[in-house]
């Protein structure tokens, strides 16, 4: 997806979800854990068919942000709209797919049993259920392990099954928290190919990662550090605006600008005193 240019991005921004609203709208979102500001005044708008990448080091607030977006964590202040509904809302859940950071599977059940459980709680049954499970297991290359107990799986296999479970009910909006952790490079590529296929089917994806090389595969990126969005734009523009030729350098550039601002604020405060 490296060929995705700013023009295409512009086109994409025009795309709207069925009810005419952007798929994700986050306004002035703040999450505090005691004195720590895990997410600091965050604003974002994500449209249908995008793959929005949340990039940042561990502890930058990616997981906290995603947990708030899916309704697992309550914001200290600010609002989140998913699919036109103010969160938390029960109307969103049937169309929402969530892949937690941990593989989050019932390790004493088989792969198929895990998928069957998630199908059932999303109301998928009968022939459609069987078809969907087979389809998804093939997609993540686990069809031959369907009846194996998950506790015997390797980390990468669990991650694949976890993705399949998040997708089994065909959600319109997908939130993936570090989906490629522990997945080998070859499979990582198929994951990303699959994500862009989902995009073309109108599925919107928000994905967090600390693999900077995956960044270019996203339609748009949000660089996160210390709970703040340093910058958000299409990958090319992030590179161009920073004057760097790779995302790692670009990230460091935006990070140093954040430090300058913090430093300035400190100086200002001291001057006031």
């Amino acid at each position: 997806m490296t060929e995705t240019g700013p023009e295409i991005h512009g086109e994409r921004q025009v795309q709207r979800s069925a009810n005419g609203e952007p798929v994700v709208v986050v306004k002035q979102l703040v999450k505090e854990f005691g004195k720590l500001r895990a997410v600091d005044d965050l604003n974002m708008v994500i449209n249908t068919g995008e793959t929005y990448g949340l990039i940042g080091p561990n502890g930058s607030g990616k997981t906290t942000l995603i947990r708030m977006m899916v309704g697992l964590s309550r914001p200290t202040s600010g609002t989140i709209y998913l699919l036109g509904e103010k969160m938390p809302s029960p109307k969103v859940s049937p169309n929402l797919g969530y892949m937690p950071q941990l593989s989050a599977l019932y390790s004493d059940l088989t792969a198929a049993e895990n998928m069957r459980f998630f199908c059932k709680i999303y109301g998928l049954r009968g022939k459609e259920q069987g078809k969907r499970i087979r389809e998804m297991l093939e997609r993540v290359d686990l069809a031959d392990r369907a009846n194996d107990v998950v506790s015997k799986f390797s980390g990468g296999m669990k991650q694949r099954l976890s993705l399949a479970c998040a997708l089994v009910h065909g959600p319109r909006l997908l939130m993936l928290d570090e989906p490629t952790g522990g997945v080998d490079p070859e499979l990582r590529r198929t994951f990303w190919q699959y994500f862009s296929q989902l995009n073309s089917e109108g599925v919107t994806i928000i994905v967090s990662t600390h693999h900077l090389d995956e960044a270019s595969r996203c339609t748009r990126l949000g660089l996160m550090r210390l709970g703040e969005l340093l910058a958000q734009d299409v990958p090319q523009d992030l590179l161009r605006n920073s004057g760097k030729d790779n995302m790692e350098e670009a990230f460091l550039y935006y990070a140093s600008r954040q430090d300058e601002v913090v430093e300035e604020e400190k100086v200002e405060k001291e001057e006031i005193q």
Binding site: V70, P90, A166
Partner: peptide
């Protein structure tokens, strides 16, 4: 978490 995100 998965169960809580689902319609359950």
């Amino acid at each position: 978490d998965r169960v809580m995100v689902s319609p359950v």
